[in-house]
Amino acid sequence: MLKLISIFFWIGLWCILSFLYDLKSMLLPDFLSTTTSSIELLHNKEFIHHLFVTFSRVIPGNFISIIFGVPLGISLSLYPCIRLLFEPMLSFIRGVPVAALFPVVIILFGIGEVARTFLVFYVALPIVITSAMYGAVERPENSGRRHYLKIHSKNIASWHMPLCLLWDALPSIFGGLKIAVSLSLAIIIVSEMFFVGGSGVGWYAWNEYQAFNLSKMYASIFIIGIMSVTLNKTLDIMKTTVEKLSR
């Protein structure tokens, strides 16, 4: 209920500001015209195609980072010495802004889809590794089940222990993926705007800006925001489902 009130509050504030300050300008469009343009865009096949292209660019890099990052992170959780060895490198990689790597990525991979996938992978991998690592580390609330599995290690199927580690790490992994997906989306949209590509919401928004179709530009930004919130909410639901099943 509070969330709904909050949403209506911010929309109301937007409407009031646009009414008071005549915001048919580059700074901030009014809510109604943005909403109308958004609805028109969602019926526009060309825009839907660009939307699909943008999200399909986000997925492969994140998927590859999960394939590599989750097993590596869980393995690091088991061996504190190796974890201490990797932590400075992970912190450093996380600290280097991915935008600073654009020239390097262009040299290595060009300006096509492989470059974009690598950028997303670079952004997501340290987040996934760290989330999996800290999620799977043994602590009082998860040590009981691990002790039980250790006691019966000769009697039950061997896949229960790795599954136990993964299960313990899942809430943290979903939390990390929220951050990774949001950052990936940002980096993809920037790359669409400034790399030659000809597709994607970033390219579309930049094109509309250059043609001074500002309502469509803001509408595309608004839609991206809604889609990002939806993705985050999906990951939240997955996280709370795992937590509920673990009760």
């Binding site: 009981g144 002790h147 199927a157 229960h160 099943l245």
Partner: peptide, 28 residues
């Protein structure tokens, strides 16, 4: 003895949440 059984005080720790109750009973 090598063959040990354990019922922990926090008994839910001995249950595997990724499988249902029947599969938990069938774990051995």
């Amino acid at each position: 003895p090598q063959n040990k059984g354990y019922v922990p005080q926090a008994y839910r720790e001995a249950l595997m949440p990724w499988i249902n109750t029947l599969r938990n009973l069938q774990i051995f």
